[in-house]
Simulated assay, not measured.
Amino acid sequence: MRRLQAVIFDVDGTLVDSERDGHRVAFNLAFEEAGLPDRWDPVPYGQLLNVTGGRRRLVRYLVARGHGPAEAEELARRLHTRKTDLMRDLIEVGAVPPRPGAVRLLTELAAARVELSVATTGNRAWVEPLLARTFPVVRFRAVVTGTEITVLKPDPAVYLEAMRLTGHGPEDCVAVEDSAAGVSAAVQAGLRCVAVTNDYTRDHDLSGAAYVGEGLDDPAVLEWFRSRLTT
Rank of each mutant, 00 (worst) to 15 (best):
Y159Q: 04
V194C: 12
R3P: 03
V138N: 09
D217R: 00
V194Q: 13
L86Q: 13
D17N: 15
N198L: 02
N198R: 06
V25T: 05
T150P: 14
V196K: 14
R82N: 12
E108T: 10
A162T: 01
K83L: 03
P37F: 01
T231F: 13
P98G: 04
T84G: 08
A26H: 02
P44G: 06
L86R: 13
A34F: 09
A162G: 03
L191D: 03
E108C: 09
R88C: 06
G213W: 04
T121P: 08
E161F: 05
V51S: 10
K153R: 12
G182P: 15
N198Q: 08
G35L: 07
L222R: 15
V174F: 09
L90E: 00
A181P: 11
L58I: 02
A64E: 15
P170Y: 03
C173E: 02
P37R: 01
E128N: 11
R124T: 10
E71S: 06
V137Y: 08
E161S: 05
P156Y: 05
V11T: 11
C193Y: 11
P98F: 02
R39C: 15
R78E: 14
A209S: 12
W224A: 00
E108W: 07
G46W: 09
A157H: 05
H67Q: 14
D41I: 06
D38Q: 14
E161D: 09
A125R: 15
R39W: 12
D218Y: 01
F31E: 04
V137P: 11
G53M: 03
L29Q: 13
R24W: 05
L206H: 15
A210E: 13
V63W: 10
W40H: 09
A142T: 07
D41R: 15
R24P: 08
E73I: 14
R60P: 14
V151P: 11
R226L: 09
R57L: 14
I91N: 00
L152D: 10
D10P: 12
R141S: 01
E171Y: 00
A6L: 00
R55G: 11
M163H: 11
Q5L: 05
R226P: 10
V51F: 08
D218C: 01
L191R: 01
A220D: 03
H67M: 15
V7F: 04
Y211E: 07
R139K: 04
E73R: 15
P100R: 00
T84P: 09
R124V: 09
F9K: 07
P136K: 06
D89C: 09
L165K: 12
K83R: 06
L15M: 09
G46K: 09
V25D: 00
V114W: 03
V51C: 13
L105Q: 01
S179E: 10
V158F: 02
T145E: 04
R88I: 08
D17T: 11
E71N: 04
A189I: 10
E148Y: 05
P69H: 10
T81M: 15
G46F: 09
E108Q: 13
